[in-house]
């Protein structure tokens, strides 16, 4: 049973770049494994996979994948991926982006990518901080947490990225923690199999810059803490659970059957071409 599914991540990595640049215990590596595992189980050929990433720790993750990878400008991976998916519908396009990349600088692109419902998979690695640039506050930094730009604790409310994506029209929205690798792999698999825009928030850990500054413990403590913070989808929405507002709903949060933009676009183009003749 295990034989046909046997998965060795090294087949999907650019081995000459390893070991990767990420800090010890960084959750992004685990999220990358889940993505590659999902790709392996879906049987997507490496040359049919295109990974687009932005700037930040999450942006660097894409570079280690032995496939078509595209390291784009800050906040714009979704914009680049939109063009790529429209031009090359034969490719499976996955966007890897971070919380700052996706929600702050690229917030506008996220809204419109969700609205168009183009067949893309967007993985937002949420580690609550701008790690690569030195640990500045991001739109998902929890209240009272210390960062280099909030030395007395963050006073701003946070974004719930999944609810933003759902409201903006994403037809598939999910969330999972890196602690649950097989569950995360299965969620990414469903997201990639879904036709339309799928948004997955991956709760990751920044151990060195965020965890240490906030006294959240070492990497094992942080990853163990994820389990206390998460709640399987069966328990309902976060909004319905006022007694545990800090707990995160995980799993597939919403899934709708909506017209996919790429198909509509190509049908329109074909109609125009036939009209010209």
């Amino acid at each position: 049973m295990t034989e046909p599914l046997a998965f060795d991540i090294r087949e999907y990595l650019r081995l000459e770049l390893m070991p990767h640049f990420m800090c010890p215990g960084c959750g992004h590596g685990i999220a990358l494994r889940a993505l590659l595992w999902a790709v392996h189980e879906l049987g997507i050929a490496k040359d049919k996979l295109a990974v687009v990433s932005g700037i930040g720790c999450s942006g660097r993750v894409g570079a280690y994948i032995d496939a078509n990878t595209y390291h784009t400008t800050h906040g714009r991976p979704l914009a680049f991926a939109t063009g790529l998916a429209l031009a090359r519908p034969d490719l499976k396009v996955v966007v890897i982006t971070g919380d700052g990349d996706c929600l702050a600088i690229g917030g506008n692109h996220l809204l419109h990518a969700c609205r168009r419902n183009l067949d893309l998979t967007c993985l937002m690695f949420n580690n609550e901080v701008y790690g690569m640039t030195g640990g500045q506050v991001s739109p998902t930094t929890s209240a009272t947490r210390l960062t280099t730009t909030t030395p007395t604790g963050n006073a701003e409310p946070v974004f719930d990225a999944c609810r933003i994506a759902e409201a903006a029209g994403a037809s598939f929205v999910g969330r999972e923690v890196t602690r649950q690798v097989p569950a995360l792999k299965n969620l990414i698999k469903s997201a990639m199999s879904h036709v339309g825009f799928s948004f997955v928030e991956v709760i990751s850990d920044c151990t060195e810059i965020y965890g240490r500054k906030n006294d959240l413990g070492e990497a094992p403590e942080m990853i163990l803490h994820q389990k206390a913070d998460m709640r399987p989808e069966a328990f309902g929405n976060v909004a319905d659970q006022p007694f545990r507002p800090n707990r995160l709903t995980t799993g597939i949060l919403s899934q709708h059957d909506l017209p996919e933009y790429g198909e509509t676009y190509r049908a329109r183009a074909a109609l125009l071409r036939s009209g010209e003749k």
Partner: peptide
């Protein structure tokens, strides 16, 4: 193997 962020562990069975 699953939780190693650095892909340093592989389990062979």
């Amino acid at each position: 193997e699953w939780l190693c962020p650095d892909f340093a562990i592989t389990v062979h069975q």
